[in-house]
């Protein structure tokens, strides 16, 4: 995002911001991004964001965990080092279930969380420039890329939709 000229407006309330997003859609203004201090419900479809597929990734990681645990224990106790415990068969499936379950959960959780941070480009040591320090406090921000929406057009949009402040910044 280096060197992008951004025009952004700040709103005091998420309902104002949502109304403005609807307004921008009707005028076919391409919104670059919306920033808010908490997740605003109902915003995603307005911005044309498709549903997150993280849960599919989670399922795949979980399955990987299931297979790792179950096949691993199977191989260890039937092929690599078979031992009889208390007269039970080598391949004692019921006894494998707790560990299989735990590893399913572990793989799914760790895999999904890492995927989340990588997809979002977040992580320890990452510094992203923020448009305004109050976005994580109480301001709701709509940002336009100046190459998509000219500054004049953006400013008149913000003024007509009740933005309390309009600024321009290079990200």
């Amino acid at each position: 995002m280096a060197g992008k000229q951004i025009t952004y407006g700040l709103y005091n309330d998420e309902t104002d911001m949502m109304a403005a997003v609807k307004h921008a859609n009707s005028k076919h203004l391409e919104i670059m991004d919306v920033f808010s201090p908490f997740p605003v419900h109902g915003l995603d479809p307005l911005l044309g964001l498709s549903e997150s597929r993280l849960h599919i990734a989670g399922f795949v990681y979980g399955l990987l965990g299931t297979l790792t645990a179950f096949l691993g224990m199977t191989w260890i106790f039937t092929k690599d080092w078979p031992i009889v415990f208390g007269g039970k068969p080598y391949w004692s499936v019921p006894a494998f279930i707790p560990i299989t379950f735990e590893l399913t959960v572990l793989f799914a959780a760790v895999g999904m969380t890492f995927t989340f941070y990588i997809l979002c480009g977040l992580g320890p040591g990452v510094t992203n420039k923020v448009l305004d320090d109050r976005i994580t406090d109480d301001k709701f921000c709509i940002a336009f890329d100046e190459t998509e929406v000219g500054r004049g057009e953006a400013e008149s949009f913000f003024n007509s939709t009740g933005a309390t402040e309009v600024h321009s910044k290079v990200l």
């Binding site: 991004d33 919306v34 920033f35 808010s36 201090p37 908490f38 997740p39 605003v40 915003l43 995603d44 911005l47 964001l49 997150s52 993280l54 989340f116 941070y117 997809l119 979002c120 480009g121 977040l122 992580g123 320890p124 990452v126 510094t127 992203n128 923020v130 976005i135 994580t136 921000c141």
Partner: peptide
């Protein structure tokens, strides 16, 4: 972690 509050990030979060 460089959190910005972007709409897509919130959705994934």
């Amino acid at each position: 972690f460089g959190w910005t509050g972007s709409a897509k990030h919130w959705q994934r979060w």
